[in-house]
Nucleic acid binder design. Structure first.
Lengths: 187, 187
DNA sequence: CTGATTTTTTGATTTTTATCAATAGCCTTC
DNA sequence: GAAGGCTATTGATAAAAATCAAAAAATCAG
Protein backbone atom coordinates (compact mmCIF):
# COMPACT_ATOMS: atom_id res chain seq x y z
CA UNK A 1 0.00 0.00 0.00
CA UNK A 2 2.87 2.37 0.63
CA UNK A 3 3.77 2.80 -3.00
CA UNK A 4 0.35 4.02 -4.05
CA UNK A 5 0.10 6.34 -1.06
CA UNK A 6 3.43 7.90 -1.92
CA UNK A 7 2.38 8.49 -5.49
CA UNK A 8 -0.96 10.00 -4.51
CA UNK A 9 0.57 12.30 -1.94
CA UNK A 10 2.90 13.68 -4.58
CA UNK A 11 -0.08 14.93 -6.55
CA UNK A 12 -1.70 16.95 -3.81
CA UNK A 13 -1.72 17.38 -0.05
CA UNK A 14 -5.00 15.59 0.29
CA UNK A 15 -6.42 15.03 3.81
CA UNK A 16 -5.42 11.76 5.40
CA UNK A 17 -9.09 10.96 5.89
CA UNK A 18 -9.78 11.14 2.15
CA UNK A 19 -6.83 8.93 1.36
CA UNK A 20 -8.06 6.35 3.81
CA UNK A 21 -11.50 6.46 2.28
CA UNK A 22 -9.91 5.77 -1.08
CA UNK A 23 -7.64 3.02 0.16
CA UNK A 24 -10.64 1.38 1.81
CA UNK A 25 -12.11 0.71 -1.60
CA UNK A 26 -8.97 -0.75 -3.13
CA UNK A 27 -8.64 -4.47 -3.60
CA UNK A 28 -5.53 -6.37 -4.50
CA UNK A 29 -5.22 -8.45 -7.59
CA UNK A 30 -2.47 -10.63 -8.99
CA UNK A 31 -2.23 -11.31 -12.69
CA UNK A 32 0.12 -14.08 -13.83
CA UNK A 33 2.41 -13.37 -16.75
CA UNK A 34 0.60 -13.77 -20.04
CA UNK A 35 -2.91 -13.31 -18.65
CA UNK A 36 -5.11 -10.37 -19.54
CA UNK A 37 -6.39 -7.57 -17.35
CA UNK A 38 -9.09 -6.57 -19.79
CA UNK A 39 -10.04 -8.05 -23.11
CA UNK A 40 -11.35 -6.38 -26.25
CA UNK A 41 -15.15 -6.23 -26.14
CA UNK A 42 -15.44 -6.21 -22.35
CA UNK A 43 -16.29 -3.08 -20.41
CA UNK A 44 -13.33 -1.92 -18.36
CA UNK A 45 -14.76 -1.27 -14.91
CA UNK A 46 -11.56 -1.29 -12.88
CA UNK A 47 -8.87 1.33 -12.60
CA UNK A 48 -5.60 -0.40 -11.68
CA UNK A 49 -2.50 0.86 -9.97
CA UNK A 50 0.51 -1.27 -10.88
CA UNK A 51 2.17 -1.91 -7.57
CA UNK A 52 4.60 -4.25 -9.30
CA UNK A 53 4.69 -5.45 -12.87
CA UNK A 54 4.60 -4.51 -16.50
CA UNK A 55 1.67 -4.53 -18.91
CA UNK A 56 1.00 -3.92 -22.57
CA UNK A 57 -2.14 -2.49 -24.12
CA UNK A 58 -2.89 -3.38 -27.73
CA UNK A 59 -5.62 -3.80 -30.30
CA UNK A 60 -6.05 -5.91 -33.40
CA UNK A 61 -5.80 -4.68 -36.94
CA UNK A 62 -5.93 -7.19 -39.80
CA UNK A 63 -5.15 -10.05 -37.41
CA UNK A 64 -1.98 -8.34 -36.23
CA UNK A 65 -1.79 -6.83 -32.79
CA UNK A 66 -0.63 -3.26 -32.49
CA UNK A 67 0.76 -1.91 -29.25
CA UNK A 68 -0.93 1.20 -27.90
CA UNK A 69 1.10 1.60 -24.73
CA UNK A 70 3.23 -0.02 -22.07
CA UNK A 71 2.71 0.68 -18.38
CA UNK A 72 4.93 -0.18 -15.48
CA UNK A 73 5.30 -0.20 -11.71
CA UNK A 74 3.94 2.98 -10.15
CA UNK A 75 1.55 3.84 -12.97
CA UNK A 76 -2.20 3.66 -13.34
CA UNK A 77 -3.67 1.61 -16.14
CA UNK A 78 -7.11 1.05 -17.60
CA UNK A 79 -8.63 0.96 -21.02
CA UNK A 80 -9.31 4.64 -20.50
CA UNK A 81 -11.91 5.22 -23.19
CA UNK A 82 -13.85 2.18 -22.00
CA UNK A 83 -13.49 3.06 -18.33
CA UNK A 84 -14.61 6.63 -18.90
CA UNK A 85 -17.54 5.80 -21.16
CA UNK A 86 -18.36 2.39 -19.63
CA UNK A 87 -18.67 0.99 -23.13
CA UNK A 88 -16.85 -2.07 -24.55
CA UNK A 89 -13.11 -1.73 -24.89
CA UNK A 90 -11.38 -1.95 -28.23
CA UNK A 91 -8.11 -2.62 -26.50
CA UNK A 92 -6.75 -5.61 -24.64
CA UNK A 93 -4.33 -5.27 -21.75
CA UNK A 94 -1.99 -8.15 -20.98
CA UNK A 95 0.57 -8.75 -18.26
CA UNK A 96 4.03 -9.05 -19.78
CA UNK A 97 5.28 -10.13 -16.40
CA UNK A 98 3.60 -11.16 -13.17
CA UNK A 99 1.64 -8.18 -11.85
CA UNK A 100 0.50 -7.11 -8.44
CA UNK A 101 -2.25 -4.50 -8.69
CA UNK A 102 -4.47 -2.35 -6.52
CA UNK A 103 -7.83 -1.90 -8.17
CA UNK A 104 -10.86 0.25 -7.63
CA UNK A 105 -14.12 -0.27 -9.45
CA UNK A 106 -15.72 2.43 -11.59
CA UNK A 107 -18.78 2.50 -9.38
CA UNK A 108 -16.78 2.81 -6.16
CA UNK A 109 -14.70 5.58 -7.66
CA UNK A 110 -17.76 7.54 -8.80
CA UNK A 111 -19.37 7.07 -5.39
CA UNK A 112 -16.24 8.38 -3.71
CA UNK A 113 -16.22 11.43 -5.98
CA UNK A 114 -19.76 12.26 -4.91
CA UNK A 115 -18.97 11.93 -1.24
CA UNK A 116 -15.52 13.46 -1.21
CA UNK A 117 -14.49 16.20 -3.60
CA UNK A 118 -10.86 15.92 -2.50
CA UNK A 119 -10.71 12.62 -4.32
CA UNK A 120 -12.18 13.99 -7.52
CA UNK A 121 -9.62 16.78 -7.22
CA UNK A 122 -6.82 14.24 -6.94
CA UNK A 123 -8.15 12.26 -9.89
CA UNK A 124 -8.33 15.45 -11.94
CA UNK A 125 -4.67 16.16 -11.29
CA UNK A 126 -3.67 12.64 -12.27
CA UNK A 127 -5.77 12.80 -15.41
CA UNK A 128 -4.09 16.06 -16.36
CA UNK A 129 -0.65 14.47 -16.06
CA UNK A 130 -1.72 11.57 -18.23
CA UNK A 131 -3.21 13.97 -20.76
CA UNK A 132 0.02 15.92 -21.03
CA UNK A 133 2.07 12.74 -21.35
CA UNK A 134 -0.18 11.48 -24.12
CA UNK A 135 -0.03 14.79 -25.97
CA UNK A 136 3.74 14.87 -25.78
CA UNK A 137 4.00 11.30 -27.02
CA UNK A 138 1.81 12.22 -29.97
CA UNK A 139 3.55 15.47 -30.82
CA UNK A 140 7.17 14.63 -30.39
CA UNK A 141 7.12 11.51 -32.50
CA UNK A 142 5.81 13.49 -35.45
CA UNK A 143 8.12 13.85 -38.41
CA UNK A 144 10.77 11.71 -36.87
CA UNK A 145 12.43 8.86 -38.70
CA UNK A 146 12.10 5.31 -37.41
CA UNK A 147 15.58 5.53 -35.94
CA UNK A 148 14.86 8.81 -34.15
CA UNK A 149 11.71 7.38 -32.60
CA UNK A 150 13.67 4.40 -31.32
CA UNK A 151 16.44 6.56 -29.88
CA UNK A 152 13.85 8.73 -28.18
CA UNK A 153 12.33 5.65 -26.56
CA UNK A 154 15.71 4.55 -25.26
CA UNK A 155 16.07 7.97 -23.69
CA UNK A 156 12.64 8.24 -22.15
CA UNK A 157 11.58 4.68 -21.38
CA UNK A 158 14.50 2.26 -21.58
CA UNK A 159 12.62 -0.33 -19.51
CA UNK A 160 10.27 -0.95 -22.40
CA UNK A 161 13.09 -2.06 -24.64
CA UNK A 162 14.44 -4.38 -21.98
CA UNK A 163 11.15 -6.02 -21.16
CA UNK A 164 9.09 -6.18 -24.34
CA UNK A 165 9.57 -8.26 -27.47
CA UNK A 166 10.90 -6.60 -30.61
CA UNK A 167 7.60 -6.94 -32.46
CA UNK A 168 5.70 -5.38 -29.58
CA UNK A 169 8.01 -2.39 -29.41
CA UNK A 170 8.03 -2.04 -33.19
CA UNK A 171 4.27 -1.59 -33.47
CA UNK A 172 4.38 0.85 -30.55
CA UNK A 173 6.92 2.88 -32.53
CA UNK A 174 4.93 2.59 -35.73
CA UNK A 175 7.39 0.52 -37.73
CA UNK A 176 7.80 -3.08 -38.85
CA UNK A 177 9.72 -5.46 -36.64
CA UNK A 178 12.29 -5.95 -39.38
CA UNK A 179 12.96 -2.23 -39.44
CA UNK A 180 13.41 -2.14 -35.68
CA UNK A 181 15.70 -5.14 -35.81
CA UNK A 182 17.87 -3.41 -38.40
CA UNK A 183 17.98 -0.20 -36.39
CA UNK A 184 19.16 -2.17 -33.38
CA UNK A 185 21.86 -3.83 -35.45
CA UNK A 186 23.42 -0.44 -36.38
CA UNK A 187 23.26 0.77 -32.77
CA UNK B 1 -23.21 33.03 -23.74
CA UNK B 2 -25.86 30.53 -24.75
CA UNK B 3 -23.54 28.32 -26.74
CA UNK B 4 -21.15 27.67 -23.89
CA UNK B 5 -24.02 27.07 -21.46
CA UNK B 6 -25.53 24.49 -23.78
CA UNK B 7 -22.24 22.67 -24.11
CA UNK B 8 -21.61 22.66 -20.38
CA UNK B 9 -25.09 21.42 -19.56
CA UNK B 10 -24.58 18.49 -21.87
CA UNK B 11 -21.70 17.29 -19.71
CA UNK B 12 -23.55 17.16 -16.42
CA UNK B 13 -26.67 18.50 -14.73
CA UNK B 14 -24.71 20.99 -12.75
CA UNK B 15 -26.62 23.41 -10.46
CA UNK B 16 -27.61 26.68 -12.05
CA UNK B 17 -25.82 28.51 -9.27
CA UNK B 18 -22.49 26.87 -10.14
CA UNK B 19 -22.88 27.67 -13.79
CA UNK B 20 -23.54 31.29 -12.97
CA UNK B 21 -20.47 31.38 -10.76
CA UNK B 22 -18.45 30.08 -13.70
CA UNK B 23 -19.98 32.43 -16.23
CA UNK B 24 -19.27 35.32 -13.88
CA UNK B 25 -15.56 34.75 -14.36
CA UNK B 26 -15.66 34.56 -18.13
CA UNK B 27 -14.52 37.45 -20.23
CA UNK B 28 -14.99 37.93 -23.93
CA UNK B 29 -12.14 38.26 -26.35
CA UNK B 30 -11.94 38.83 -30.07
CA UNK B 31 -8.92 37.71 -32.04
CA UNK B 32 -8.53 38.99 -35.60
CA UNK B 33 -7.60 36.51 -38.28
CA UNK B 34 -3.88 35.85 -38.31
CA UNK B 35 -3.24 36.95 -34.73
CA UNK B 36 -2.11 34.58 -32.02
CA UNK B 37 -3.89 33.48 -28.88
CA UNK B 38 -0.74 32.20 -27.24
CA UNK B 39 2.83 32.23 -28.46
CA UNK B 40 5.63 29.73 -27.92
CA UNK B 41 7.54 30.60 -24.75
CA UNK B 42 4.64 32.33 -23.02
CA UNK B 43 2.74 30.71 -20.17
CA UNK B 44 -0.79 29.89 -21.22
CA UNK B 45 -2.95 31.23 -18.42
CA UNK B 46 -6.29 31.34 -20.19
CA UNK B 47 -8.64 28.54 -21.09
CA UNK B 48 -10.70 29.61 -24.09
CA UNK B 49 -14.06 28.51 -25.36
CA UNK B 50 -14.41 29.17 -29.08
CA UNK B 51 -17.80 30.78 -29.39
CA UNK B 52 -17.14 31.41 -33.05
CA UNK B 53 -14.02 30.84 -35.07
CA UNK B 54 -11.28 28.45 -36.04
CA UNK B 55 -7.76 28.12 -34.65
CA UNK B 56 -4.62 26.13 -35.28
CA UNK B 57 -2.07 25.00 -32.75
CA UNK B 58 1.47 24.36 -33.97
CA UNK B 59 5.10 24.24 -32.97
CA UNK B 60 8.36 24.77 -34.78
CA UNK B 61 10.75 22.07 -35.84
CA UNK B 62 13.77 22.96 -37.99
CA UNK B 63 12.18 26.31 -38.91
CA UNK B 64 9.08 24.56 -40.25
CA UNK B 65 5.84 24.77 -38.37
CA UNK B 66 4.04 21.54 -37.61
CA UNK B 67 0.33 21.50 -36.86
CA UNK B 68 -0.64 19.86 -33.58
CA UNK B 69 -4.38 20.40 -33.77
CA UNK B 70 -7.23 22.44 -35.16
CA UNK B 71 -10.09 23.62 -32.96
CA UNK B 72 -13.38 25.09 -33.97
CA UNK B 73 -16.60 26.67 -32.78
CA UNK B 74 -17.94 24.97 -29.66
CA UNK B 75 -14.61 23.59 -28.49
CA UNK B 76 -12.23 24.53 -25.70
CA UNK B 77 -8.67 25.41 -26.55
CA UNK B 78 -5.52 26.11 -24.61
CA UNK B 79 -1.92 25.05 -24.79
CA UNK B 80 -2.92 22.28 -22.40
CA UNK B 81 0.49 21.25 -21.14
CA UNK B 82 1.36 24.88 -20.44
CA UNK B 83 -2.00 25.66 -18.89
CA UNK B 84 -1.85 22.61 -16.64
CA UNK B 85 1.75 23.07 -15.56
CA UNK B 86 1.83 26.89 -15.78
CA UNK B 87 5.16 26.62 -17.55
CA UNK B 88 6.12 28.16 -20.93
CA UNK B 89 4.28 26.76 -23.91
CA UNK B 90 6.07 25.02 -26.73
CA UNK B 91 3.09 25.57 -28.95
CA UNK B 92 1.65 28.63 -30.64
CA UNK B 93 -2.06 29.01 -31.27
CA UNK B 94 -3.19 31.23 -34.12
CA UNK B 95 -6.61 32.32 -35.36
CA UNK B 96 -7.16 31.03 -38.90
CA UNK B 97 -10.28 33.15 -39.02
CA UNK B 98 -11.71 35.89 -36.84
CA UNK B 99 -12.48 34.40 -33.42
CA UNK B 100 -14.88 35.29 -30.67
CA UNK B 101 -13.88 33.62 -27.41
CA UNK B 102 -14.97 33.29 -23.82
CA UNK B 103 -11.94 33.01 -21.58
CA UNK B 104 -11.29 32.16 -17.97
CA UNK B 105 -7.92 32.63 -16.30
CA UNK B 106 -6.04 29.77 -14.69
CA UNK B 107 -6.20 31.46 -11.30
CA UNK B 108 -9.93 32.11 -11.49
CA UNK B 109 -10.56 28.53 -12.53
CA UNK B 110 -8.49 27.12 -9.68
CA UNK B 111 -10.24 29.44 -7.23
CA UNK B 112 -13.60 28.26 -8.48
CA UNK B 113 -12.58 24.63 -8.06
CA UNK B 114 -11.74 25.27 -4.43
CA UNK B 115 -15.02 26.97 -3.74
CA UNK B 116 -17.30 24.81 -5.83
CA UNK B 117 -16.62 21.14 -6.42
CA UNK B 118 -19.41 20.95 -9.01
CA UNK B 119 -17.18 22.95 -11.30
CA UNK B 120 -14.19 20.73 -10.80
CA UNK B 121 -16.48 17.80 -11.52
CA UNK B 122 -17.58 19.40 -14.76
CA UNK B 123 -14.00 20.14 -15.73
CA UNK B 124 -13.06 16.53 -14.99
CA UNK B 125 -15.74 15.28 -17.38
CA UNK B 126 -14.59 17.62 -20.12
CA UNK B 127 -10.98 16.62 -19.61
CA UNK B 128 -11.96 12.97 -19.90
CA UNK B 129 -13.64 13.60 -23.23
CA UNK B 130 -10.59 15.39 -24.52
CA UNK B 131 -8.37 12.58 -23.27
CA UNK B 132 -10.40 9.96 -25.12
CA UNK B 133 -10.42 12.05 -28.28
CA UNK B 134 -6.65 12.43 -28.11
CA UNK B 135 -6.14 8.72 -27.56
CA UNK B 136 -8.35 7.84 -30.49
CA UNK B 137 -6.51 10.29 -32.72
CA UNK B 138 -3.26 8.62 -31.75
CA UNK B 139 -4.44 5.06 -32.18
CA UNK B 140 -6.48 5.27 -35.32
CA UNK B 141 -3.82 6.98 -37.34
CA UNK B 142 -1.34 4.21 -36.56
CA UNK B 143 -0.36 2.01 -39.45
CA UNK B 144 -2.47 3.90 -41.93
CA UNK B 145 -1.15 5.12 -45.25
CA UNK B 146 -1.09 8.82 -46.02
CA UNK B 147 -4.21 8.41 -48.16
CA UNK B 148 -6.11 6.58 -45.41
CA UNK B 149 -5.29 9.28 -42.91
CA UNK B 150 -6.60 11.93 -45.29
CA UNK B 151 -9.79 10.00 -46.02
CA UNK B 152 -10.36 9.57 -42.30
CA UNK B 153 -10.01 13.30 -41.79
CA UNK B 154 -12.59 14.00 -44.49
CA UNK B 155 -14.96 11.67 -42.65
CA UNK B 156 -14.41 12.98 -39.16
CA UNK B 157 -13.53 16.65 -39.55
CA UNK B 158 -14.29 17.92 -43.06
CA UNK B 159 -14.26 21.53 -41.86
CA UNK B 160 -10.52 21.36 -41.37
CA UNK B 161 -9.95 20.62 -45.03
CA UNK B 162 -12.19 23.46 -46.09
CA UNK B 163 -10.66 26.05 -43.83
CA UNK B 164 -6.95 25.28 -43.51
CA UNK B 165 -4.14 25.55 -46.06
CA UNK B 166 -2.76 22.38 -47.62
CA UNK B 167 0.56 22.65 -45.84
CA UNK B 168 -1.14 23.09 -42.48
CA UNK B 169 -3.30 20.03 -42.97
CA UNK B 170 -0.37 18.01 -44.33
CA UNK B 171 1.75 18.46 -41.22
CA UNK B 172 -1.28 17.63 -39.07
CA UNK B 173 -1.58 14.36 -40.99
CA UNK B 174 2.15 13.70 -40.82
CA UNK B 175 2.95 13.97 -44.49
CA UNK B 176 4.57 16.45 -46.87
CA UNK B 177 2.38 19.01 -48.56
CA UNK B 178 3.28 17.58 -51.94
CA UNK B 179 2.02 14.19 -50.88
CA UNK B 180 -1.26 15.67 -49.68
CA UNK B 181 -1.64 17.63 -52.89
CA UNK B 182 -1.17 14.45 -54.92
CA UNK B 183 -3.67 12.54 -52.78
CA UNK B 184 -6.22 15.27 -53.38
CA UNK B 185 -5.59 15.12 -57.12
CA UNK B 186 -6.57 11.40 -57.23
CA UNK B 187 -9.66 12.02 -55.12
C1' DC C 1 -6.71 45.76 -63.09
C1' DT C 2 -2.09 44.24 -62.79
C1' DG C 3 2.28 42.92 -61.00
C1' DA C 4 4.04 40.59 -56.99
C1' DT C 5 3.81 37.22 -53.56
C1' DT C 6 2.16 33.13 -51.79
C1' DT C 7 0.10 28.70 -52.27
C1' DT C 8 -0.75 24.65 -54.79
C1' DT C 9 0.13 21.42 -58.25
C1' DT C 10 2.96 18.58 -61.08
C1' DG C 11 7.30 16.15 -62.39
C1' DA C 12 11.71 13.60 -61.61
C1' DT C 13 14.51 11.43 -58.37
C1' DT C 14 16.02 9.62 -53.96
C1' DT C 15 15.30 7.93 -49.51
C1' DT C 16 12.95 5.44 -46.24
C1' DT C 17 10.49 1.75 -44.84
C1' DA C 18 7.40 -2.27 -45.74
C1' DT C 19 6.99 -6.70 -47.53
C1' DC C 20 8.35 -11.23 -48.75
C1' DA C 21 11.51 -14.86 -47.86
C1' DA C 22 14.99 -17.42 -45.77
C1' DT C 23 18.10 -18.31 -42.07
C1' DA C 24 19.78 -18.19 -37.39
C1' DG C 25 19.13 -18.07 -32.41
C1' DC C 26 16.68 -19.55 -28.29
C1' DC C 27 13.99 -21.30 -25.13
C1' DT C 28 11.02 -25.10 -23.89
C1' DT C 29 9.82 -29.74 -23.09
C1' DC C 30 10.04 -34.23 -23.57
C1' DG D 1 20.47 -32.93 -25.56
C1' DA D 2 17.59 -33.12 -29.72
C1' DA D 3 13.01 -31.72 -31.86
C1' DG D 4 9.80 -28.34 -32.31
C1' DG D 5 8.04 -23.86 -31.96
C1' DC D 6 8.68 -19.02 -31.28
C1' DT D 7 11.51 -14.80 -31.96
C1' DA D 8 15.00 -12.21 -34.12
C1' DT D 9 18.09 -11.23 -37.78
C1' DT D 10 19.48 -10.67 -42.43
C1' DG D 11 18.81 -10.22 -47.48
C1' DA D 12 16.42 -8.85 -51.77
C1' DT D 13 12.88 -6.29 -53.68
C1' DA D 14 8.88 -3.29 -53.92
C1' DA D 15 6.13 0.33 -52.36
C1' DA D 16 5.35 4.61 -50.11
C1' DA D 17 6.52 9.01 -49.29
C1' DA D 18 10.22 12.75 -48.97
C1' DT D 19 12.91 15.91 -51.36
C1' DC D 20 14.30 18.96 -54.95
C1' DA D 21 12.71 21.70 -58.68
C1' DA D 22 9.73 24.15 -61.59
C1' DA D 23 5.22 25.56 -63.38
C1' DA D 24 0.49 26.91 -62.56
C1' DA D 25 -3.05 28.94 -59.86
C1' DA D 26 -4.80 31.80 -56.38
C1' DT D 27 -4.50 35.76 -53.39
C1' DC D 28 -3.20 40.31 -52.27
C1' DA D 29 -1.65 45.23 -52.54
C1' DG D 30 -1.43 49.29 -54.69
Amino acid sequence: MEAILNILQKFSNIPQESLERFVGKLHEKSIPKGETLIREGEVCNQLSFINKGFVRSYYFKDKKDITISFSMTGEFIASMSSFISQKPSYETIEALEHCHLYQISYQDLMDLFEKDSHLEHLYRLILEQYYVALEEHLIFSKFKTAKERYLELIETKPLIIQKAAVGQVASYLDMSLETLSRIRANI
